[in-house]
């Protein structure tokens, strides 16, 4: 039963519960799933699932992005292609895909392609270790982790990675959110798959 509970549906519900039930306004939550990649037992963290909520202030949607017109066109093109591949419909039939793709939306989408060797990157450092909480643009920009620096470039002000039984929960926000034990405890309850039931 514990393995059947560990599927993408319940992951999505847990991520949603975590973000929607939080007092702070988190922009997204990602579950990085651990898997063993070779005989030496080395593991890697890859995309498990993610929940994107977006910025609290919808007005920020239009102003947050600072990238060039060419970059915005590239993002829209990628989104259009993905949309037509997923829905099977013509991209032009869906006006939503032609809306500006914000920095945090793009950061979230690009995250789906990423993975981290155990011990490297923000999620990789948190795995089998302690939570990592980075608040403030300066701290993110000065981090030794590329993902943290990347997050800052895409408008994040807070990034958190909390280890769980078989992966890492990452949260990001465009707001300044300071460390609190409530969130860490919630992650431990919601994502401790070994103790299901």
């Amino acid at each position: 039963p514990s393995t059947s509970l560990f599927n993408q549906e319940t992951l999505q519900q847990r991520l949603q519960t975590l973000i929607e039930g939080a007092r702070e306004s988190w922009t997204y939550a990602i579950y990085w799933q651990s898997s063993v990649v070779d005989f030496s037992g080395a593991s890697t963290l890859g995309w498990g699932d993610g929940y994107y909520k977006g910025e609290e202030d919808k007005g920020k949607r239009k102003t947050a992005s600072s990238q060039s017109a060419a970059e915005q066109e590239h993002r829209k093109k990628v989104l259009r292609e993905l949309n037509s591949l997923i829905s099977g419909s013509s991209a032009s039939a869906d006006d939503a895909v032609d809306e500006e793709v914000t920095d945090t939306e793009w950061f979230f989408l690009v995250s789906m392609t990423q993975s981290f060797v155990n011990g490297s990157g923000l999620p990789g450092q948190a795995f089998n270790s302690v939570p990592i909480w980075v608040t403030g643009k300066e701290r993110l920009a000065g981090s030794s982790c590329e993902r943290a620096r990347q997050g800052q470039v895409f408008g994040l002000q807070t990034m958190v990675c909390i280890p769980s039984a078989s992966g890492v929960v990452e949260l990001g926000s465009t707001e300044l959110i300071f460390q609190n034990s409530d969130l860490v405890n919630k992650v431990r309850v919601l994502f401790n798959f070994n103790n299901m039931g």
Binding site: D49, K58, L82, S87, F108, M112, T113
Partner: peptide
């Protein structure tokens, strides 16, 4: 194309559906 397998199909599908919902909720007058 070959890029799609990199993305988790369900995650992407959810993201696109929710994005559409969010954009629909944003008032055209704001």
């Amino acid at each position: 194309n070959g890029d799609l397998p990199i993305f988790r199909r369900k995650s992407l599908q959810r993201f696109l559906v929710k994005r559409k919902e969010r954009l629909t909720l944003v008032s055209p007058y704001s």
